[in-house]
């Protein structure tokens, strides 16, 4: 009689179809049959659900695959929630992402902040090359970005502009006051940005790179530029629930995710840049990760200052 597969529940901020391709690649390498049930949703909603499950003592998730700051916040709120992953693959993981408790909140891929544009409306030559370029009056009514009040992911970009580039004009909080004068559209997340740029309604968007690759594969006339100031680099991390009965499979999955094979699968199916230095990928523009000016985001700052970022943004756009 065929062995029943072990069922593992993954709460994922990565869209299900993409995450399924990654877990399917892992399942081929795992000695026992395993089935992954993936619950995909906006990170904010999944985190709320996990918090409530934790409070009740009835967690259903075995593995979490979400933005790092939210996982850090979760670990801070519920001590000992995540199991430690011991992997020889950590030796090749970029030092810049091995921060805090990286063995429990394990970095699996890099989220890169870029400028997306519609090629029907904006020529490659005319496309903004930097975040500073976006302040040009010609982009009035043309820009779209996520609102930090409803999107957790955009806090990475806010860190870049208000902390990393602070004191270097035109950056700091006044950047958002100037940008607001150009009447950008603020939306709930990065999905609407993708669609508005594709339709040309807002031809320029401050966007995560992995939202650009799928439309390009489908043949959409969109492209992106790597901002001259540097590419804000957030992280998607994985964590294994310490009380999970499937901890062994979960730990094996996360170990595999940071291995060269796992990193290639994540880059191929999810379009996240690798965190393992032994792996380098080529983006559709021919550039490799090693060619980019990456600026690792201080995820701990975001975890601790989320409310301040929202207040700062409101103050900046209210200022005349």
């Amino acid at each position: 009689m065929a062995q029943q597969p072990t069922e593992v529940n993954i709460y994922s901020g990565i869209p299900r179809e993409q995450a399924e391709q990654v877990t399917a690649a892992f399942a081929k390498t795992y000695p026992q049959p395993v089935k992954f049930n993936i619950l995909y949703g906006p990170t904010e909603e999944l985190i709320a659900q996990i918090n409530l499950e934790q409070q009740s003592g009835q967690p259903k998730a075995d593995v979490l695959w979400l933005d790092k700051p939210q996982l850090q916040a979760l670990a801070k709120r519920h001590k000992g929630i995540f199991a430690e992953v011991n992997s020889k693959n950590f030796d090749n993981v970029l030092a810049s992402v091995k921060t805090d408790d990286y063995k429990r909140v394990v970095p699996t891929g890099l989220l890169l902040y870029v400028i997306m544009y519609n090629r029907n409306v904006v020529s490659d030559a005319d496309a903004p090359k930097s975040f500073a370029d976006l302040l040009n009056a010609k982009w009035t009514n043309k820009i779209i970005m996520a609102n930090p009040q409803s999107s957790a992911g955009v806090h990475n970009f806010f860190w870049l502009i208000t902390q990393h580039l602070a004191g270097k004009p035109p950056f700091g909080w006044e950047y958002f006051t100037k940008l607001n004068a150009l009447k950008p559209q603020y939306v709930s997340g990065h999905g609407p940005i993708r669609d508005q740029v594709i339709s040309g309604e807002r031809p320029v968007g401050i966007q995560l790179q992995f939202y650009v690759n799928d439309p390009i594969k489908r043949g959409e006339k969109v492209w992106w530029t790597w901002p001259a100031e540097g590419v804000a680099t957030g992280q998607v991390s994985a964590a294994v629930m310490d009380k999970s009965k499937k901890k062994d499979v979960g730990t094996a999955l996360v170990d595999w995710m940071i291995s060269p094979a796992g990193q290639e699968a994540i880059a191929k199916h999810v379009s996240l840049a690798p965190v393992n230095s032994a792996v380098d990928i080529k983006f559709p523009d021919g550039k490799k990760t090693s060619d980019l000016k990456l600026v690792p985001v201080d995820t701990t700052y975001i975890t601790e200052h989320r409310a301040d970022i929202i207040k700062g943004f409101q103050k900046a756009i209210d200022a005349r």
């Binding site: 869209p15 299900r16 995909y40 949703g41 906006p42 993708r194 439309p215 489908r218």
Partner: peptide
């Protein structure tokens, strides 16, 4: 919602 946000797009 998953389909919209995922590979399916609009």
């Amino acid at each position: 919602l998953n389909r919209w946000d995922g590979e399916g797009g609009f």
